[in-house]
C-alpha cells in the first residue's frame, strides 16, 4: 500500500494548504496527476471542494468551542489566527473535540493578553464539559478523618481547572450569554475555578490564597503540606486570613463537589 500511503500523504498536505489548489503550482499539478476531473468540474476544482471543507469544518469546530473569543476578536481576526493555528498544529486526533487543545498557548504573543486568557477559560470549559463523572464525597468521611485529615491527600473533581488570569474574562462569557457586547475587559488579576456541577458548567472567582491551596492540592500534596506551602508564600498580613478562612473554604469545596475523595495515609 505504498502507493496509497504516498497518495494520501500528498493529498493530505494539499487539503491542509491555506492556498486554493489552483493558485499553487504544486497542488494544481497533483490534482491533474491523480484526480480525473470532468467537464463540469476540473480536477483542481474537485480537489478544492475538499480543501475548502477542511477549513470550513475546522474553523466551525473551533468557533463552537470559543464563542466569546470569536466575538472578542471579530470573525476575520479569529479566522486568520485559527488558520495559522491549523497550519502550525494540524489535527492529530480522530476527535474534533481535541482540535483546539493548543490554541490558548498558540495565541500567546499573537493576540491581546486578555484574549489569551479568554481562550484559556473557554478551553477549560471544553475540558469540564466531558470530564469523568464521580460520585460526591460523603461528608461523613471527611468528618470521620478528624486530625488525620491534615495528612490526607485530596482528590479534586476531574472537571476542575484552576486559572490565574490577568483579567476577569469570565465576565465576557457572562455578557455573551446575556446578549451584551463582549469587549475584552481591563486588566485585573483574577483567580478562577472552572468546574462542572452535575451536568452544568460553571466558574467562580476565588481568593488568591484559596487558589494557591487548591493548586497545591491538585499537585498531590497532603493537606498540611499544601497549606505550609501556601503559608510560606504568604505576606505576613495574609497568614491570619489563611488560618481563619481555610476551614470554611474546605467545607465549601466539599459542598460544591470540588473535592471527590480524601485518602488517609
Amino acid at each position: 500500500m505504498k502507493r496509497l500511503a504516498e497518495l494520501q500523504r500528498e493529498l493530505s498536505a494539499a487539503l491542509r494548504s491555506p492556498r486554493p489548489i489552483w493558485q499553487d503550482d504544486g497542488t494544481r499539478a497533483l490534482a491533474d496527476r491523480v484526480v480525473r476531473g470532468q467537464p463540469r468540474l476540473s480536477a483542481a476544482r474537485q480537489l478544492e471542494l475538499y480543501r475548502e471543507q477542511f477549513f470550513f469544518r475546522h474553523l466551525d469546530a473551533v468557533a463552537e468551542d470559543f464563542p466569546a473569543l470569536v466575538e472578542a476578536l471579530g470573525w476575520d481576526a479569529f479566522e486568520e489566527v485559527t488558520t495559522a493555528y491549523l497550519a502550525a498544529h494540524p489535527p492529530t486526533s480522530f476527535s474534533l473535540r481535541d482540535l483546539a487543545a493548543r490554541l490558548p498557548d498558540f495565541l500567546e504573543g499573537r493576540a491581546a493578553p486578555a484574549a489569551v486568557d479568554l481562550a484559556r477559560l473557554e478551553w477549560a470549559l471544553v475540558e469540564a464539559f466531558d470530564a469523568a463523572d464521580a460520585p460526591p464525597i460523603d461528608a461523613a468521611k471527611v468528618t470521620a478523618a478528624g486530625d488525620a485529615l491534615d495528612r490526607a491527600t485530596i482528590t479534586l473533581d476531574a472537571s476542575l481547572t484552576l486559572l490565574a488570569l490577568g483579567a476577569p474574562v469570565h465576565e465576557v462569557r457572562e455578557r455573551l450569554a446575556g446578549g451584551e457586547a463582549t469587549a475584552l475587559p481591563e486588566a485585573r488579576p483574577t483567580w478562577l475555578v472552572v468546574y462542572r456541577r452535575e451536568l452544568d458548567l460553571d466558574w467562580r472567582e476565588v481568593p488568591p490564597l484559596a487558589h494557591a491551596a487548591l493548586s497545591a492540592l491538585s499537585r498531590g500534596l497532603p493537606l498540611s503540606d499544601a497549606l505550609d506551602e501556601v503559608a510560606a508564600r504568604c505576606a505576613p498580613d495574609e497568614l491570619g486570613t489563611l488560618e481563619a478562612e481555610i476551614g470554611g473554604w474546605f467545607r465549601q469545596w466539599v459542598a460544591d463537589g470540588w473535592i471527590r475523595d480524601v485518602t488517609l495515609p
Partner: peptide, 23 residues
C-alpha cells in the same frame, strides 16, 4: 480521513481498485 499522521475529519474517496478494496 487521515494521512501522514494528520486527520482531515472528512470522508474522502478512495481509488477504486481491487488492491485498495482488499486493503
Amino acid at each position: 480521513s487521515a494521512g501522514g499522521g494528520h486527520h482531515l475529519h472528512d470522508l474522502l474517496p478512495l481509488p477504486m481498485t481491487l488492491e485498495v478494496a482488499r486493503h
